[in-house]
Design a protein around this nucleic acid. Structure first.
Lengths: 257, 257
DNA sequence: TATTATGCAGTTGTATGATGACTTTCGAAT
DNA sequence: ATTCGAAAGTCATCATACAACTGCATAATA
């Protein structure tokens, strides 16, 4: 019964290796050890962090799994060359779950880009109309100052449907269920970034996609969808950082009391 | 002078844990252990794989990092609830019908195109080497007049792996199993279209992809992969028609007897 | 009887020491 | 100067032990 309500909130005790991973990752991303350079040996890290080699090895294995470092037997552990562009940068200091969510989101990106291209080629009149309808519904909700999330989702879904390949829709549903649909439905951001200008931007991007599909230009449709989703990804990442900062602050506030 | 061409012979011995990861991942994606269920204990896995607990733990850590399993101290290691097993069942009940297979193949196309682009940006040295290795293995098998299917699959898999997004690999595994790997492994076509010239063509397309990825050119990599898979799709369609024609003939022959 | 407390067996987390395999370095022999 | 080989450094793996935690059965209690 050492469990208080506060304890229930989150949290199981973090494994030591996770702590070490966070510390090393932070240093790597700060560029304290340039790419291609060798990290301290496991023995040195053992002393530095005051934990066993077991923990150090587990931490290094995780970093290697993320592509941040590479271990060469007999030589040492080296900083990976591509970390500046690595996805690990985006997933920097967030928990494993957020990182997973970002990865899923990325797969969704692949699905949607291609479906936009196919929709441009294969859509029939009714399907094109459905996409337009979702577009205008978004517009209506926006003017009425109502939540636009559902319309946004419907827009993307209509496009997937217009590929005439039912699996695209299924994939979208399956992926969307776990990884925060697209733009404005995550619970902790509803009040923060729902600015009019923000949603206007979304709608402008939607329009470009819609036009490309209507024109039957697959290449343009893919490109438009790519920029749209890439930006969404960026927005999502920024929100994660904002949340992280929020928690950090509340933590600091709590500790200064 | 340290690096000669011969040195590029990349054949670094795979770590034991990697082997174990592959084996367990395969089982998980096949759905042999349903989500939420407990895996065998580390001790049991130690016996079944004949390696030390260190290796097993490292493998489990990697799987946990990929979000496939979750370890709870004192309880055990459990299969994650929200795995792509939904894809598993998705892909399970199809495969019967060819039209369905074609649709799945199309989804796979979307996945692979994007992963080629990401691989061009994010691959590290070891991953690039793995792709090259698969490429040369294809070459070797081709010259030896042996089946090139496995090498072809390995090539595509190495690319997915180089995205550093484990979900791409999972998707490929799940989709690839049911829906005709890539080009020449479907059972009813082995003798038909294995012409040398045919496979030379494949290899040429592979080379373009490989070069683009090595050059770090995402756009070119996507384009190369798109043409490769589109042509494969086309080849597959032709083979379907050929088979159809064959059956039609044998049917007619049977009826006239 | 119903409920709580206790203890035990099973499992994961961490620590430690030893050995094998591989890489790099440097000095000796040619 | 070049080649070869020994040795040190480092990661990979193994084996063992203990600590921390969980789930469950059993005992103690009201």
């Amino acid at each position: 019964m050492s469990q208080t309500v506060a304890d229930l909130r989150v949290e199981r005790k973090p494994k030591l290796s996770e702590t070490v991973v966070a510390a090393i990752r932070k240093q790597l991303l700060a560029g304290e050890i340039p790419p291609g350079q060798k990290l301290p040996t496991e023995g040195q890290l053992t002393e530095t962090f005051g934990v066993s080699r077991t923990v150090i090895r587990e931490a290094l294995a995780k970093l290697a799994a993320d592509g941040l470092v590479e271990a060469r037997q007999g030589a040492g552990v080296f900083v990976s060359e591509h970390i500046s562009t690595s996805f690990g940068v985006l997933a920097a200091d967030m928990g494993a779950k957020d990182s997973v969510a970002l990865n899923v989101l990325e797969v969704r990106l692949a699905i949607e880009i291609e479906s936009a291209g196919l929709a441009a080629i294969r859509r029939n009149a009714a399907q094109e109309a459905a996409i337009q309808e979702a577009f205008f519904e978004f517009e209506r909700l926006l003017l009425a100052s109502q939540p636009t999330g559902p319309a946004d989702l419907a827009f993307h879904r209509a496009i997937a449907s217009a590929t005439n390949n039912p699996f695209y829709v299924e994939m979208l549903d399956v992926l969307g269920r776990r990884a925060i649909p697209c733009d404005v439905t995550s619970p902790w951001s509803t009040e923060l970034v729902q600015s009019d200008e923000y949603q206007r931007g979304l709608q402008r991007e939607h329009l470009v996609i819609l036009n490309a599909i209507s024109a039957g230009d697959a290449e343009a449709a893919r490109e438009a969808m790519r920029t749209h989703l890439t930006r969404s990804q960026q927005r999502y990442r920024e929100r994660l950082q904002a949340r992280q900062a929020y928690y950090a602050n509340s933590l600091k506030a709590a500790s200064t009391e």
